[in-house]
Design a protein around this nucleic acid. Structure first.
Lengths: 263, 263
DNA sequence: TTCCTTGTGTGCACAAGTGGACAGACTGGA
DNA sequence: TCCAGTCTGTCCACTTGTGCACACAAGGAA
């Protein structure tokens, strides 16, 4: 514990690197993370795994790591779920706002499979009670998540399907860190936007005609990211700005945050 | 303080009645409310007063009382704000999720004027630190508010303007306690739904043709509430159910909660 | 009363999005 | 290698919603 400054710095750096690849967890101070560390486990998930169904007791917070992605689905009278927001390595799902032990309102679903860190919500709440700074990080993230949902509400009200399609693809790529592909069928894209499949195909077709992307069976390859940005609404950017104000460095940047190794 | 049981009971009842007419404040135990009471003030507002603009530091929690109504507006690139959720006497606005002292993401606007109770957010947070039960009431409300926004996101994605119009009118009436009128021009209705004015007029016209409502210059008179319910999506009900599970009795019922005085 | 502003009803041409259909193209597994 | 199931591109008729225009109605101020 009482190492010289240099050692402490090195310890801290390597300690952060050994944490799960989730920006929220990595944002915590060493002391704060130490409160959680004994209760953190990591599990692998596959696409379409369900983390919560409406009405489930929320007892575990899930932190997407690396390229994993979760979404909140709102069930609908026809049985069609509507996808609302994406959560990747910048955040967490489950009891973030409610502080747990309440019935889930939405369904939470793994969109792109991969590792998720898990912490029991009671352990997290206990840690929040012990550390103000830890509590604040989570309150700040809750605020960012709220911003994301608000923006999404507005976006669905007024932006065209073309804009929303482009937005969704960019948002997914930012979070996974994948520079140019999204593993998604037209059908899945249509469902998550809440639109008809044939129209989704047509939008992709128009993007393809303009050289913005290519389509493969089951995936979309982005060829011109700036072109896609031009066709997207600004909802992503608005949310990103709020993240930067409230939780600087947590929102994934375009540059892969992993290895800036040169040489 | 050390009165006999009977006196205490009477004290409590009258004490609740003397609180501002906000269901969240009235839901608090006497002890919890006592922590807040010294810091509660009540102010009158007029329609279109702004409580927060995006970027403002959130320092005060506002509790709509009686028929007052606030809305969260998401600013848009064209300058058109998009209205997202309504908050009436079942809730509060400002720092509910963020716990304050962060820049506001949305604009918060008084939709229908009237009294609002105000509490400094730092005072509220201090009270939450002292009382677990008080903290839980607010965490539960935050969860309900989140549910409301999620539902709104889904609603905007898939429900028709006719359904959303009916939903909005019903939601506003539930909250104000006004049994059959909503003070709104077609223009305002259109703006808050994010649609064109002429189409909003046409939807109202069709409702009128079916005997569901009448229109006056600047207000809408509901003639057949069940008919309106039939034409609305079920989003209101889904949110209401979550309120009942999580914060029973806080969501305003159809019956005016005020004076069940007989004789 | 008269004027002037704001709100309302409606017509029209057009854009956006739906939902069903179907042929052809991929791809994994037998 | 072939088959079956899924995914994709495109067509079509139709509904929903847009945006603009314009005449008329209501109601407060002078």
């Amino acid at each position: 514990m009482a190492g010289i400054t240099m050692d402490a710095r090195i310890d801290k750096a390597s300690e952060v690197d050994s944490r799960p690849a989730n920006n929220l967890l990595r944002r915590l101070s060493q002391a704060d993370y130490a409160l959680l560390a004994p209760h953190v486990t990591v599990e692998n998930t596959a696409a379409n795994d369900l983390l919560y169904n409406p009405g489930d007791d929320v007892q575990v917070v899930h932190f997407p790591c690396g390229p994993s992605l979760a979404t909140f689905l709102v069930p609908n009278e026809d049985g069609r779920d509507v996808e609302t927001i994406l959560v990747g390595r910048e955040g967490a799902v489950g009891g973030i706002v409610s502080e747990g032990f309440l019935p889930a309102y939405t369904r939470i679903c793994v969109k792109f499979g991969g590792p998720f860190a898990r912490v029991n919500v009671a352990r997290l709440e206990a840690a929040k009670q012990r550390s103000t700074s830890l509590r604040h990080v989570f309150a700040r993230y809750a605020d960012c998540m709220l911003a994301q949902i608000f923006q999404s509400t507005a976006c669905n009200a007024i932006h065209s399907i073309e804009q929303r399609t482009a937005k969704w693809i960019l948002a997914a790529m930012e979070r996974t860190g994948d520079e140019n592909s999204v593993p998604l069928t037209h059908e899945q894209l249509a469902t998550l936007l809440g639109v008809g499949r044939s129209y989704a195909s047509r939008v992709l077709q128009s993007f393809r005609a303009e050289g913005v992307l290519e389509t493969r069976r089951g995936s979309i390859l982005v060829r011109n990211r700036d072109g896609l940005r031009l066709r997207a609404c600004l909802c992503n950017d608005a949310v990103k700005m709020h993240f930067e104000e409230v939780l600087r460095g947590v929102y994934p940047t375009a540059e892969p945050s992993s290895s800036p190794v040169r040489g």
